[in-house]
Amino acid sequence: MSAGRIRLGMVGGGEGAFIGAVHRHAAWLDNRYELVAGAFSSNAETSRRSGQALDLDPARVYADYAHMARAEAARDDGIEAVVIVTPNHMHAPVARAFLEADMHVICDKPVTTTSDDARALQALARERGLLFAVTHNYSAYPMVRQARAMVREGALGDIRVVQVEYAQDWLAEPLEQTGQKQAEWRTDPARAGGGAIGDIGSHAWQLADTIVGRPVESLCAQLNTFVPGRAIDDDVQVLLRYAGGARGMLWASQVAPGHANDLRIRVFGSKGGLEWRQQQPNELLWTPLGEPTRIVERGGPGTHAAARRMSRVPAGHTEGYIEAFAALYGDVAHHLLARRAGIGGAGMDEAWFPTIDDGLRGVLFIETVQASSCEGGAWLALLQS
């Protein structure tokens, strides 16, 4: 397998964008990627300044993504993969342009604002034989992989109850009216596609999906908008019915004072229960039925191989958000380098990451929640891919 770094491009993520810098730091952490090109903003001057700040060749800093896709495809040293970190409504057209240019895609979530767009991208990626990763980074925390492995190996017995929540307080006031860039587009239905359900609710759904490994069959939901004048939901509550009989609850709120980025999940089975919280990511609480609760520490005794392979430093040292993103990028790199070398590669099954298939199911979840809420909280079968 070639040891050369993967040539990476980025669309979006310029000046004032939080998530673009997160993706760049994550990609750089293992030295397996090199950012060589970008269209960092729909404003040409902002894109130019952003590229200059990143010390990129000015000739490879583009005013728009379509020009970038064409120009990079024509180069012998053009990018191999593009990272898409634009507002949600631009994910589909940008991804389409680069897939049609035969470039792999790494896209922020939700992958699109409509399931029709997601299906079209799924079909195009399959037709071209290209990798399409969706950066649900929480799925790459070591202790999330630990929980996933324990559920799959039957440690919890028959799964009965799933509770997942993602609480924030940053939109408890009308921040979008102050001109704050992130709040402005995330509360715009045309650009976001969904408020709390699309932004953080999709993360909560995907975390439960990663750990539980059973499909949601039906749900009933209530979308709420608490801040006066806001045009999109800022709170969502969902009841879930899983295949196999498990029942669940999902709550996502951006108007919960005292909660900065509080993603947590509890899973209960016939033999025991698990609890994980993103703000204490190195610990997993494990309670076998009838026994005291145990703290399983990242890198410590009793951790599963699936968790250990995602860890970077010895137990007792803190790992968190950037490292989880980097672990996800590392698994994507494993597959990209194997494809470059024309081999399957040992350990490919272990190098797991969310794909366009997961992205499509996430959009279908969002759409089903929205439909249920519009029907007064009716129970609806989850739309299928």
Results as ranks from 00 to 15, higher is better:
225 T>Y: 10
206 Q>C: 00
227 V>F: 11
207 L>M: 12
216 V>T: 05
225 T>H: 13
203 H>I: 00
209 D>V: 00
216 V>H: 10
216 V>R: 11
207 L>K: 09
223 L>H: 09
223 L>D: 05
205 W>C: 04
224 N>T: 11
222 Q>H: 12
220 C>V: 00
226 F>W: 14
210 T>L: 01
218 S>N: 10
220 C>N: 15
219 L>K: 07
205 W>V: 02
205 W>I: 03
219 L>T: 03
222 Q>L: 06
227 V>K: 14
228 P>W: 10
202 S>I: 03
200 I>Q: 06
223 L>N: 11
217 E>S: 12
221 A>M: 05
213 G>W: 01
206 Q>N: 14
215 P>I: 03
202 S>R: 10
207 L>W: 02
225 T>L: 10
206 Q>L: 06
229 G>Q: 08
205 W>E: 12
217 E>D: 13
220 C>A: 13
202 S>P: 01
210 T>K: 02
209 D>A: 09
225 T>W: 10
211 I>F: 01
203 H>C: 04
215 P>L: 04
221 A>S: 10
223 L>I: 07
218 S>K: 13
202 S>G: 10
225 T>E: 09
203 H>S: 03
205 W>H: 15
220 C>E: 06
200 I>D: 04
208 A>H: 06
207 L>N: 09
224 N>F: 13
213 G>I: 00
204 A>N: 09
230 R>T: 02
205 W>G: 05
223 L>C: 15
202 S>H: 12
229 G>K: 08
211 I>T: 00
227 V>C: 09
218 S>E: 11
230 R>H: 13
217 E>H: 13
229 G>N: 12
216 V>F: 07
220 C>Q: 15
214 R>V: 06
215 P>H: 11
220 C>L: 05
225 T>A: 15
211 I>N: 04
211 I>D: 01
227 V>E: 11
225 T>Q: 12
207 L>P: 05
218 S>D: 06
202 S>Q: 14
226 F>V: 13
218 S>Q: 15
207 L>A: 08
216 V>A: 12
